[in-house]
Simulated assay, not measured.
Amino acid sequence: MDELQPSDLNILLVEPSNAQSKVIEHELASEGIHNIDFVTCMRDALERIDTIRPDLVISCYHYEDGTGLDLLREIRGQEELEDLPFMLVTSESRRDRLEEFKQSGVVAILPKPFSHEHLRRAINATLDLLTTQDLELDLFDPESLRVLVVDDSRLARKVVTKVLTNLGIENLTEAADGSEAIEILKDRSFDLVVTDYNMPEVNGVELTEHIRASEVHGHVPVLMVTSEANQTHLANVAQSGVNAMMDKPFEPEGVRRLLATILNG
């Protein structure tokens, strides 16, 4: 099968501002993307998605009948749409306003105004989510690689497992938080742990410290995915013994590079 190209994508753009729609349309056209449906409100967006499922939804934050978060919740609330790629374009910068977007597995959060490079990376991330490309490793066969995915957000776990599956990794185990992961590690061994940072009871740092203190699992690489921007917290993460960190929302190509680095030793 031919490799999926940006020009193959069908985009649903939800933006009440005609001027902003023109800006985004121009930037998408420069990437060869012309198959774009335009709507201005949440009601029309849901009707369009129900009629023809797009490959990517690009949305602003505010409409007359709701917000981008309302639309995202509606989409994620339908099992058949849980993995629909969603991109937010917003001037909102408050962490608490953006956290649920990050935890819901959006493909990108673009600032207003955004650069063309921002958009290109987001489009590439979308293509990576829609296609498969096996991970090339010197020491492991991706199909036999045993990976533990730990995140208290089911939707975030779904995105992580989707990315890993697209890389040819099939042996995946999920844990809803750090405490469940510790229980799983009592009986099973893994080649890699991918964990969130912010979790109740046992967070990602505490889980990593537990792994590093274990005679059985101390050698297992840990990739931490976090939306945390606080430098003190990030320093604590680095000191806990993680092998690499990725931001939420993360780019599948970045995951590929990091996994190739930490698993190839």
Score class of each variant (00 low, 15 high):
12 L>G: 01
12 L>Q: 03
12 L>F: 05
12 L>D: 02
13 L>W: 02
13 L>G: 04
13 L>P: 01
14 V>D: 01
14 V>H: 04
14 V>L: 08
15 E>Q: 06
16 P>M: 08
16 P>Y: 05
16 P>E: 09
17 S>N: 08
17 S>G: 13
18 N>K: 11
18 N>P: 06
18 N>H: 13
19 A>H: 11
20 Q>N: 10
20 Q>F: 09
20 Q>H: 15
21 S>V: 06
22 K>N: 12
22 K>A: 13
22 K>E: 15
23 V>H: 05
24 I>T: 05
25 E>V: 07
25 E>Q: 11
25 E>S: 10
25 E>P: 00
25 E>K: 09
26 H>T: 15
26 H>S: 14
28 L>H: 01
28 L>D: 00
29 A>N: 14
30 S>E: 14
30 S>N: 15
30 S>Y: 14
30 S>A: 15
30 S>C: 12
32 G>N: 07
32 G>F: 06
32 G>L: 08
33 I>G: 01
33 I>C: 05
34 H>P: 10
34 H>I: 15
35 N>G: 10
35 N>C: 11
35 N>L: 10
35 N>E: 10
35 N>W: 05
36 I>T: 01
36 I>K: 00
37 D>C: 12
37 D>N: 14
37 D>P: 04
38 F>W: 12
38 F>K: 07
39 V>Y: 01
39 V>M: 02
40 T>D: 11
40 T>C: 10
40 T>E: 12
41 C>I: 07
41 C>P: 05
41 C>L: 10
42 M>T: 09
42 M>W: 07
43 R>Y: 07
43 R>T: 11
43 R>K: 15
43 R>I: 08
44 D>Q: 08
44 D>Y: 00
45 A>E: 00
45 A>L: 03
45 A>G: 04
46 L>D: 04
46 L>A: 06
46 L>P: 01
46 L>C: 11
47 E>S: 13
47 E>C: 08
47 E>V: 08
48 R>Q: 09
48 R>H: 11
48 R>T: 11
48 R>A: 14
48 R>K: 13
49 I>E: 00
49 I>N: 02
49 I>S: 00
50 D>S: 15
50 D>I: 12
51 T>E: 15
52 I>M: 12
52 I>C: 12
52 I>D: 11
52 I>V: 13
53 R>Y: 06
53 R>C: 14
54 P>Y: 03
55 D>K: 09
56 L>G: 02
56 L>N: 01
57 V>C: 07
58 I>W: 02
59 S>W: 02
59 S>H: 04
60 C>E: 06
60 C>G: 13
60 C>T: 11
60 C>D: 09
61 Y>I: 13
62 H>M: 13
62 H>A: 10
64 E>D: 11
64 E>V: 10
66 G>P: 01
66 G>R: 04
66 G>K: 03
66 G>D: 03
67 T>S: 11
67 T>V: 07
68 G>T: 01
69 L>S: 06
69 L>Q: 06
69 L>F: 04
69 L>P: 00
70 D>M: 09
70 D>V: 07
70 D>E: 09
70 D>K: 06
70 D>W: 04
